[in-house]
């Protein structure tokens, strides 16, 4: 599904990714761990097509090169990023945002857009799965939401948009144990043979709930080590210093 070869990324004269290789197949869960500032969010941004990076190397998504595609085209083709810091958009109702988003994606795929009623039914169902109160959905997008509420809202969006590749950037940071479990359940319930996950995290505790197929250690812009779920457990004990 995703093939990254020798990826380099530079922004504002800062060389951040320095030759990164990664292959992800449908149905797989990959975890990326690594020290602060190692380039994890940069990788997420480059994959989702954020402007401003100077890119070298090659990224193929389902066999197609991503370099020519805009952020929204990538989203329309099924790449989803749960933001480390979800943005507030004052005056825009959460429901409106979700519906605009879903319908833009459907339109781009030549599918029928959802009418208000069908959409509300869908959103209600998904929200209740995540224990999100309905009132929440008529509030302005992320405005005044707590950290945990913002993260849950990202997972709600993921479940509604049904992406093929979901990138979660520190979605677990700042969550209490209950919220963490809800987020993990959200991911597990969406996981299937066709879609894949790239989960950026600092903590093994998330990986206790979502069992990764691969764990990668990113340091200094490169993947320094790759292992299975055991690697995560080991890292929790020893820290990064032995590896990087």
């Amino acid at each position: 599904m995703l093939n990254i070869k020798n990826l380099e990324a530079t922004i504002d004269n800062k060389h951040i990714l320095k030759g990164l290789n990664l292959d992800i197949k449908p149905g797989e869960v990959h975890a990326i761990m690594g020290p602060n500032g190692s380039g994890k969010s940069t990788l997420a941004n480059v994959l989702s097509g954020k402007n401003g990076y100077e890119i070298k190397g090659d990224i193929k998504y389902n066999g197609e090169s991503l370099s020519e595609l805009s952020t929204e085209e990538r989203a329309q083709k099924g790449i989803f990023l749960a933001f480390q810091y979800p943005l507030e958009i004052p005056g825009v109702n959460t429901n409106t945002f979700l519906r605009t988003s879903l319908n833009s994606i459907k339109k781009a795929r030549g599918q029928k857009e959802l009418d208000t009623l069908t959409f509300l039914k869908l959103v209600k169902e998904k929200a209740s799965e995540l224990g999100i109160n309905e009132k929440f959905l008529s509030r302005q997008l992320n405005v005044g939401f707590s950290g945990g509420e913002k993260k849950k809202n990202e997972i709600l969006q993921m479940k509604i948009l049904q992406p093929k590749l979901s990138i979660l950037d520190e979605t677990d940071s700042g969550l209490d144990i209950d919220a963490l479990r809800i987020v993990a359940d959200g991911v597990n319930s969406y996981k299937n043979k066709e879609n894949a996950f790239l989960i950026i995290t600092h903590y093994q505790r998330l990986l206790d709930y979502i069992k990764p197929d691969f764990v990668h250690v990113l340091s200094n812009g490169k993947i320094m080590k790759t292992g299975d779920a055991e690697l995560g457990i080991q890292l929790e004990k020893t820290g990064y210093s032995n590896i990087v």
Partner: peptide, 19 residues
């Protein structure tokens, strides 16, 4: 953020400005 959710530039501007 809006682009990442599939909105093109004009839809995104319109959404934010209308908000």
């Amino acid at each position: 953020y809006c682009n990442q959710r599939g909105l093109d530039q004009e839809e995104a501007v319109s959404l934010i400005v209308n908000g």
